[in-house]
Computed example of a mutant assay.
Amino acid sequence: MSRRSQVEETVRAVIGEILPDLPATDVTLDKNLRDLGADSVDRVEIISLLIHRLASKEPISDFADIPHIGALIDHLSKGSE
């Protein structure tokens, strides 16, 4: 499994944990966390958990301008393949 595939799987799992009522089919790469119904606290929890699970050293502020789930996966995957 590629690093990007692993990151995508982790992103989907974390979103499912923080937004348990969201159908998994709604998590598409073109949507952002707001589109999925995540409020500001949910978004911080999702990013914080992703940073932890993926052992990223990036500050949470580096994630502020990421436009959608696909870009989030790309950002978390970069430099790790």
Rank of each mutant, 00 (worst) to 15 (best):
M1W: 13
M1F: 04
S2G: 02
S2C: 01
R3M: 07
R3I: 08
R3F: 02
R4M: 02
R4C: 05
S5L: 00
Q6Y: 09
Q6K: 11
V7Q: 03
V7I: 06
E8V: 04
E9T: 04
T10P: 02
T10D: 04
V11C: 06
R12K: 10
A13P: 01
V14F: 07
I15E: 04
I15F: 05
E17F: 05
P20C: 12
P20A: 13
D21K: 10
D21T: 08
L22E: 00
L22N: 00
P23Y: 06
A24L: 07
T25Y: 02
T25C: 09
V27S: 13
V27A: 13
T28H: 08
T28W: 04
T28P: 06
T28V: 15
L29R: 00
D30E: 15
K31V: 01
K31R: 15
N32I: 10
N32M: 10
N32Q: 12
R34M: 04
R34A: 11
D35M: 07
D35F: 13
L36D: 06
L36Q: 01
A38E: 08
A38G: 08
A38K: 14
A38Q: 11
D39V: 09
S40M: 09
S40V: 06
V41R: 05
D42M: 03
R43C: 00
V44P: 01
E45Y: 08
E45D: 15
I46C: 04
I46N: 11
I47S: 06
I47Q: 13
S48L: 11
S48V: 13
L49K: 14
L49Q: 09
L50H: 02
I51S: 08
I51L: 12
H52I: 01
H52G: 05
R53W: 06
L54M: 10
A55W: 00
A55T: 02
S56D: 13
K57R: 05
K57N: 15
K57Q: 07
K57W: 02
E58N: 08
P59Q: 15
P59R: 15
P59T: 15
I60R: 05
S61A: 10
D62Y: 01
F63C: 05
A64T: 01
A64S: 12
D65W: 14
D65I: 03
I69N: 08
I69R: 12
G70T: 13
L72W: 14
I73N: 09
I73T: 12
I73V: 15
I73E: 08
H75P: 00
H75T: 10
H75K: 03
H75L: 09
S77K: 05
K78F: 10
S80K: 15
E81S: 06
E81C: 03
